[in-house]
Design a protein around this nucleic acid. Structure first.
Lengths: 246, 246
DNA sequence: CGAATAGTGTCTCTCAGACAATATTGC
DNA sequence: GCAATATTGTCTGAGAGACACTATTCG
């Protein structure tokens, strides 16, 4: 039983030369999220070259011919932002490949989602004028280069959902943290205040989420009882989930 | 998202050489899942050409130069399996692009996950010897072409997780179905028996999950009380989730 | 002491797991 | 009637939201 190729595909196949293939380029783009000063923020660059010169964009770039996708993402992360791989959570967000997303040529972008602790201001890479943090809420509505608005929206929604059923909020803080710091991460990402007492019960009651470190944290500027310090435990999921307030 | 380039950019584009960027081929691969005869199953093809000739593989193929990724996936779905887009659930699973995943050239594959009702045996496309359903459990451990073993595993795990917190199990059955049919989908995908009474309470108690159709279903071969028929409701999530039995 | 933050305890309601009992069919 | 499936109901324990109360620090 042989299938009859449709005209468009047949035409393409007829002109297909095994030594060549359709001119696709592959890039990685990063949705690098953090919580700084209590604000859920994303790292954006200002483009210094065409196309979209002067517009804000997600950091990213072309994948090298022999480079793994994940490796390309981590390389850009370390080079352009100074975040080390093991200090952050990195996962693939998905592929974005509308035919007209880049006016230069056909480009498929593989987007990565990164959760990082608060960082010093990173330094610009090539082709970018500046690189800095923006509050996620402020960027909402601003038009970004390429389809980066869509990519960012997908990353933000995924981040919000992941806090519900994974312990990944800990990727937004340092290696040692208090329950209050963790709660402020949830509040910033979700944009909702949470009850400190119920939150404390949930996170300390979930097995393997938090491992006590033994000594207390230094007291903050406003006074108050010193909080216990924790490290991330080996838990990989929150079951049942901690649902976002409606 | 069409954009008018400024004059200077247009000039720059005219002199632009696409060959400066590393060349990639882009394919789509489909993890097409269904439940047939009570068994969670995946559609696989036997390859008839190099590389991996004779091995089992996920159906898929090259993305055309001007084709959207989703469109490429849906096109292959309809052509090679006869599933119509609106009869199934289609979502992107992710990109797979290890440098050595295809011995011929550098290929990035964008995998799609499809939930479909039970279908007649589809017909093979070009480059494939045969196409048929395999029980997911039987394929586990069999070595598939390329990195399709990994892709399949990711799709299966995503499917199992999605049943927990979405109403997508309904994509595995026809437009009208009974609570028992829906329960058997869950049982097949999760590989665990569920309590019919508790299941009934959960799905009928979740607002907008099921819409009663009014008339009952015909009685099955073994007799038994006729079940009420339902259609999928507008709900998009199950909150709280229906967790898999540990 | 008062303000601020951390942490414990209590009450109530929702919901999931276990399972009894009833309803409606084919044979 | 009996076997099979559907559906309703009941009991119980885990867990989440609301919130009182205690603990420990700074100024």
């Amino acid at each position: 039983m042989t299938r009859q190729p449709p005209p468009d595909e047949a035409a393409w196949l007829a002109s297909y030369d095994p030594g060549r293939f359709p001119p696709f380029a592959v890039t990685v783009d990063m949705v690098l999220l953090t919580v700084r000063h209590g604000t859920f923020s994303v790292l954006l660059v200002e483009r210094d070259t065409h196309p979209f010169r002067g517009d804000l964009a997600l950091p990213g770039g072309f994948v090298l011919p022999d480079e793994d996708l994940d490796a390309a993402a981590v390389r850009r992360l370390e080079r352009e932002t100074g975040v080390r791989r093991d200090a952050a959570h990195v996962e693939q967000l998905g592929a974005f490949g509308a035919p007209d997303r880049d006016p230069r040529m056909r480009v498929v972008s593989v987007a990565y989602l990164v959760f990082a602790p608060d960082l010093e201001a990173p330094s610009p890479g090539e082709g970018t004028r500046s690189v800095s943090w923006f509050a996620v809420d402020e960027v909402d509505g601003v038009s970004l280069a390429f389809d980066h608005g869509q990519v960012l929206a997908a990353g933000v929604e995924r981040a919000r959902a992941k806090l519900e059923y994974t312990p990944l909020a800990a990727a937004f803080v340092g290696p040692e943290f208090t329950v209050g710091e963790l709660r402020r991460v949830y509040e910033a990402v979700w944009g909702h205040p949470l009850d400190p007492r119920n939150f404390h019960r949930k996170v300390t009651g979930t097995p393997d989420f938090l491992v006590p470190v033994g000594h207390p944290a230094p007291v903050g500027p406003g006074g108050g009882r010193p909080a216990a310090l924790f490290r991330r435990g080996p838990a990989t999921a929150l079951r049942p989930a901690m649902l976002r307030p409606s």
